[in-house]
Design a protein around this nucleic acid. Structure first.
Lengths: 150, 150
DNA sequence: TATTGTTATACTCTATAACTATA
DNA sequence: TATAGTTATAGAGTATAACAATA
């Protein structure tokens, strides 16, 4: 072990923040918009209030955001036959396509960055990946902040 | 090696995005505002145009941002005796204090998250840290996007 | 003229408050 | 009444265009 616990924390924080460049690829979609689309793709159709809570925004904000995304053809509105008040949002093919493009773009940038590393570095990152995933999980649980940009 | 190259990229991208929760701790300062303050603390007093270019925003945007930060008592304006056009921005003690608080907050959250991990996981992350720093560097170089939130 | 910075104006995104419609 | 969602209005943050001051 080459670092004290305090140095590990500081260095790790710095690295995590610098890695954040990967998360801000385009301006074509706000952070919340991207997270909302990704959530629907991951979990299936969802109600407006549900999305507002999940993304940590108010109901009116989600209402206008969803209206924008529907206008842009990325989301589709549906109703609940059981309850005429509710609005159910689902991804359109165009929405799914946009998410796929964003993921491909990120994968490209990451692939290029990894190509600059030595095999030993790549291997150490590979080895640490499950641990990093568990760290991310622990971080997410202890945090009240908004969702990640998928 | 337990993953193919493609799986490494996808898994790594997902982990990096999830770790992003660490970077969005508070709403009291915009991303650009935080990055600007951190840059001045790191590199010393800077001119307005210099900051605008460094943070990837326009000069008028930096002008209004800086006016806000001066109003909030986080930055102090000075002039250049050699050139009456230039404005030089420096951190106030309150600005330095705010940055310190943000860093301490992040360190706390990260420390708590690390405490949830096994010693073996923490050790693997420690081992991968230099490699991750080089990865972040490579990512940042290949990217035109704005700066990281310090 | 070129450079440094500000002001005017507009757009996006989000919030709070007030409202409509259904349960 | 309570719940699901929308509309009205305001504020933060950013951009482009036009401007003022200094070199």
């Amino acid at each position: 072990m080459h670092s004290s616990a305090a140095a590990l924390v500081d260095d790790l924080a710095a690295v995590i923040l610098q890695l954040g460049t990967l998360g801000a690829p385009r301006q074509e979609l706000s952070r919340t918009a991207a997270a909302t689309l990704a959530r629907i793709q991951r979990n299936g159709p969802a109600r407006l209030t549900e999305l507002a809570i999940a993304e940590g925004v108010t109901q009116p904000s989600m209402s206008t955001l969803v209206a924008r995304l529907v206008d842009q053809g990325l989301l589709r509105r549906g109703g609940d036959p059981q309850d005429a008040r509710v609005v159910v949002l689902d991804l359109t093919p165009a929405g799914a396509e946009l998410l796929a493009q964003r993921r491909a773009d990120r994968a490209d940038r990451l692939t290029r960055a990894l190509a600059d590393l030595s095999p030993a570095d790549a291997s150490r990152i590979d080895d640490a990946l499950p641990a990093l995933a568990r760290l991310a999980d622990a971080l997410r649980r202890s945090s009240t902040s908004p969702e990640v940009n998928r």
